[in-house]
Design a protein around this nucleic acid. Structure first.
Length: 157
DNA sequence: GCCAACGTTGGC
DNA sequence: GCCAACGTTGGC
């Protein structure tokens, strides 16, 4: 399968791209996803080496702030089994896990983030879920042409 | 902090 | 299986 591209949202107050860069191996498991569409993409479609736009949401300037990559195949999200975790879900059975995650590895932090405002102004991104009204998907695919158009914005702001 | 949009839950 | 109620997301 050829390389695919993704966008993953994170609230910087909870887990920022700097947090990812500071992890051992600059890698962290992407736990806590409790949305079926997002889960399916991680479980069924993500491949090691796929590239990711790291997006900061619910903050002052929502923006793509850098790059990461998929660093594992999907495996069960163990936080769903932990009653102490805020992500605990008693309907997820270790024998038949409901929730899955992948490892994500830091690649690069942009010197200049690409803001949601900028992304919304790009005609090439009209089909991108992120810029659509009320989009709450925390993980979404990015088409190759969209990926390239966004990278082209780097340094042009 | 507000609130629109969305996904999920659960009664029927 | 419908749909109202609810909780959450996330831009503003």
């Amino acid at each position: 399968m050829s390389r695919q591209y993704w966008l993953m949202k994170s609230e910087p107050d909870a887990f920022s791209i700097d947090d990812l860069a500071a992890k051992p191996e600059q890698t962290e498991h992407w736990d806590g996803v409790r949305n079926y569409q997002a889960r399916n993409m991680m479980r069924d479609q993500m491949q090691m080496g796929d590239r990711i736009f790291f997006y900061h949401s619910a903050c002052k300037v929502p923006a793509i702030v850098g790059l990461a990559e998929v660093a594992s195949q999907a495996y069960p999200d163990h936080t769903a089994f932990d009653p102490e975790s805020k992500y605990f879900d008693d309907k997820s059975d270790p024998q038949n896990p409901r929730w899955w995650m992948v490892d994500v590895k830091f690649v690069e932090k942009f010197t200049q983030p690409i803001s949601l405002k900028t992304l919304k102004a790009m005609p090439e991104l009209e089909q991108l879920a992120l810029v659509k009204r009320g989009c709450r998907l925390s993980i979404m695919p990015v088409a190759e042409l969209e990926w390239l158009a966004i990278l082209n914005k780097l340094g042009s702001e």
